[in-house]
Nucleic acid binder design. Sequence first.
RNA 1: UCCCGAGUAGCUCAGGUGGUAGAGCAGGUGACUGUUAAUCACCGGGUCGGGGGUUCGAGUCCCUCCUCGGGAGCCA
Length: 435
Amino acid sequence: MTAPAPYSRISELPSHAGETVRVRGWVTHLRSSGKVAFVVLRDGTGLLQAVLVKSSVSPETWTRFGQLTQETSIEVEGEVRPDARAPGGFELAVNGLSIYGESPIDYPIQPKEHGIDFLLDNRHFWLRTPRQRAIARVRSEVEQAIRDFFYERDFTLVDTPILTSASGERSGLFSTEYFEEGTAYLAQTGQLYGEAAAAAFGKIYCFGPTFRAEKSKTRRHLSEFWMVEPEVAFNDSEDNMRLQEEFVSYIVARVLERRQPELKELERDLSKLESIKAPFPRVNYSDAVEILQSKGSSVTWGDDLGAEDEAILVQDQDRPVFIYNYPKQAKAFYMKENPDDPRTVLCDDLLAPEGYGEIIGGSEREDDHDKLLARIEAENLPVEAYNWYLDLRKYGTFVHSGFGLGLERTVAWISGIHHIRESIAFPRTMHRLKP
RNA sequence: UCCCGAGUAGCUCAGGUGGUAGAGCAGGUGACUGUUAAUCACCGGGUCGGGGGUUCGAGUCCCUCCUCGGGAGCCA
């Protein structure tokens, strides 16, 4: 009795040419020509064409081929051999086939066009398709690049709470009951906690899911999205922007270096990514308003910039653009007043090219206790919830800056996909909680 | 919340001026020894989103509700 053939993943097959191996996976295509049959299977590392010749397999094996349907999970055993006609250049000459789990004929995803509602309802299956797997791998690479970037630069990762009492942003909050403490809110940002941690470690970042109950229905919004937020003690707003452009350039370079097959699957124009190198253009908010007005926009000084305005500012740019120092009333309470123009705050938005919109919002934080307290009161925020945050300005206040980068927007931009919902495995949008 | 658009077979869609529905793919059966989203022949498949109205008659016209999509605002 001989030992069973070893298992191999599809990507490893070229190194097993001439050997007999077993491969496990899911059926993606079936073709039959009477006495020769082809099974294409997927195992997450690639596609394998397995060939069955009726005269050289057992009758039982031939019968089992007839029972296969799309997405049946199977094991095939056979000899690996090079063949130019096979996808990947190698195929398996099958001598054994076993079925792990059958798949009824009503498997919903077909190799054809589907509508978006149908695909989102079947997201758990949609993930199995080549394009969606490519996006997910780009996302995974972006996340790893984010962690490596900060690790290499001696930032400490600090995980911040998701259940919070105070919020950092003004937009919609998800709430839930919290024991005897009243209402808790799902975090919209980890920033305030990050600021506390920056005084302990100097350089920190947090990275996790954040929640916005905004009733937004656009291709740039999710109600649950991932945000990475570094916070650096003694960085001013200029240092902050330099960190941002270095960070974004690093992420793009990493994906270009390691995810070529995925970018090819996504038909991404690589030249658009290759030009993403620091430094990025910087446009002062006031200058931006003048530019926009000269191009016919109706914005007036003091307004936040709308989606159309942002599109105008990035058109013809081959890399992201900083818009910095917005009016105070357009921005959050924690941003530091600009000493050179107190109507504005020291902050920046980083707008991605090709119409992907704002991928980063950053600022120097208000480090003056009294000014910060005045802003909290002016916004009618509950001061008692911010006492600990105000304490940071009372006990050894320090210049510090940080920013938040939206992971899904960044992944959508790098992948070149139209809608942000495909950049996370199970998107949460206004009208979708399943699957 | 506001402004558009769409709901017809499992999926993607077509159905001038009202006369109770079609195609492609998927599925079933058969043929084929090298297929690449195989090909060819035949077969089955529908509460036309729900409700109300006009009409002899509504997928089609009117009202209403629901669902979904696109966009705006807000933001990452």
